[in-house]
């Protein structure tokens, strides 16, 4: 069984936020909920200041602390390494949200929130509520576009290679800073990149073994 993971080339990222927008579009995310963000920092001193872009998303950790602390089993890890939430089981204690060192979980509190307050829901928002019926009071997070992966695999497509089986944020990236693939396959594109360019995980000291690697 594959262990899906992502490699993000921080040197290539131009901070366009297209991944964030593609994610919102793909999952019909309501206002104030982002599953993909770009953290922007600076290093060095004037006149040699370097702007650093770090796209962040759920790390789908191998030893995910959110899975450990969830009292109901609503957050669980699939065989392919993707950490998902069963919204029907989540009781909204938010311990997972507190425990995540990467802060990649968001409480879904307000199902009345509109993108254009006071002007009613757009067709996009109405469709989103039908396709992704998030439940108020539960916690939401990035799913590595698990529905795309599943549907693609059913059609014989290969995640990370075929666009229809690959997460939306990977497809949209204009500079191909994101690469998706099987971390357990030493011949996969992601495994090769991690080995060749010394890919690293964000804050490995937390001991969660993230499935998202970065390249500098």
């Amino acid at each position: 069984m594959a262990r899906w993971g992502m490699v993000i080339d921080a040197k290539k990222c131009i901070g366009c936020w297209a991944c964030t927008m593609a994610c919102i579009e793909e999952h019909f995310l309501p206002p104030n909920i982002l599953w993909n963000r770009v953290l922007i920092g600076e290093s060095g001193k004037y006149p040699s200041v370097v702007k650093e872009m770090y796209p962040v998303l759920c790390n789908h950790c191998k030893d995910a602390v959110c899975v450990e602390v969830c009292p109901t089993g609503a957050t669980f890890k699939r065989e392919d390494g993707i950490v998902v939430i069963d919204y029907d089981k989540c009781m909204g204690c938010r311990y997972c949200l507190i425990a995540c060192p990467y802060q990649q979980r968001t409480p879904y509190k307000d199902d009345k929130a509109e993108y254009f307050p006071g002007q009613g829901l757009t067709q996009f928002e109405i469709l989103g509520k039908e396709i992704y019926p998030f439940q108020t009071g539960t916690v939401v997070k990035c799913s590595f576009c698990v529905e795309r992966i599943e549907e693609g695999q059913k059609r014989g497509l290969k995640p990370g290679v075929d666009r229809d089986a690959t997460p939306a944020c990977v497809n949209i990236c204009p500079v191909q800073a994101r690469i998706f693939g099987d971390l357990d396959n030493p011949y996969s594109n992601v495994a090769k990149l991690i080995k060749e360019r010394k890919g690293y995980q964000m804050h490995p000291e937390f001991g969660t073994d993230p499935s998202v690697y970065y390249l500098d």
Binding site: A74, C90, M91, G92, P107, G137, T138, V139
Partner: peptide, 10 residues
């Protein structure tokens, strides 16, 4: 809790 009626699952 966001969903207190599900607390039995805890």
């Amino acid at each position: 809790m966001g969903k207190p009626l599900r607390s039995f699952r805890s």
